[in-house]
Computed example of a mutant assay.
Amino acid sequence: MSSMFQEIIAFVLATSGWILESSTVSMTDWKVSSDDGSVITSSSFFANLWKHCVTDSTGITNCKDFPSMLALDGYIQACRGLMITAIFLGFFGSVFALVGMKCTKIGGSEKNKARIACFAGIEFILSGVCSLSACSLYAHRITTQFFDPMFMSQKYELGAALFIGWAGGILCILGGSVFCFSVADSFSRSHSKANYIYRQTASHSHITAYTRGQAKPVNERPAADNSSSSRMQHFDKNVYV
């Protein structure tokens, strides 16, 4: 498979993961209330990084934003920062990927485009790592409270947004890795091609030197003719007679 098709596949994977990460931030069901141990459930609770909501038995939903960012738990602030970082890294990675791909006409020389594509791949990988870290941290807090027998407040389960965030992070990491491997493959091919051209040029110049009658090694030169040297000596002696 050529590096151009690899870059196209990597771009589709990475941008799809970035879209999933972006949609995860605005989703409300990062955690949903658990029905474990309850006989009659009159309302359901769910929350995300920005607000918590409740839906009663009539289907009416009321949401309330978190009152203060400084009053939030540390894990929510960390998840916010990681997800925002993941979105920004994915956005700039998409821009650099469009510039560095071989199927586009911008970005300069092939070497510069390869460097830009590699940089885009690294940004996609970092974006995926941030998204996976944020979702894993949030899920760890939910599971810790759920299995804690001393925790008497409302217990929650993992929401659909966490699974979408995990999927987006994995796609970003896969796309970024394919970007880096495609750039490394193109660099190795260009290096081998340069070595082949150098060897062909060197062998051609060696053959040309022999065909033009230039100096040969001493061991390949023909031995001097003794008869011709003796005639030359005889001619030298009688040159003035």
Rank of each mutant, 00 (worst) to 15 (best):
C135E: 00
G93K: 06
C135T: 13
V99C: 08
C130E: 02
F119L: 14
D148A: 05
Y138D: 07
L132W: 01
S153P: 00
A120I: 02
S136G: 15
I125H: 00
F151S: 06
Q154D: 11
F91Y: 09
I122W: 11
I125E: 00
E110G: 14
F146K: 08
H140I: 04
Y156T: 01
K111Y: 08
P149T: 06
M101S: 13
A97N: 12
F147P: 01
K155C: 02
I116G: 07
D148V: 07
F92M: 12
T143A: 09
L126M: 15
C130I: 01
N112V: 09
G128T: 04
K111G: 07
P149C: 09
L132K: 03
T144Q: 12
I106R: 14
F147V: 05
H140V: 03
N112I: 09
F151W: 08
F124K: 06
I142P: 09
Y138T: 01
L98P: 03
I122P: 05
R141S: 09
M101E: 04
G100P: 08
L137K: 05
A114K: 07
Q145Y: 04
N112Y: 07
R141H: 14
G100I: 00
L132E: 06
K111C: 00
Q145P: 00
F124M: 13
K105D: 09
F96Y: 10
A139M: 11
G100Q: 06
R115P: 00
C118V: 00
F151Y: 15
G107I: 04
N112Q: 14
T104F: 10
V95C: 13
F151R: 04
G108P: 12
G121C: 10
M150V: 01
I106T: 12
E110Q: 13
A117W: 01
F91R: 05
I122V: 15
I106W: 14
V99T: 10
K155L: 04
A120E: 04
R115E: 07
S109Q: 04
Y156R: 02
M150A: 12
L132G: 14
D148G: 07
K155G: 04
L126S: 14
A120L: 05
S153Y: 13
F92V: 15
S127W: 00
F91G: 06
M101L: 08
R141Q: 15
V129R: 01
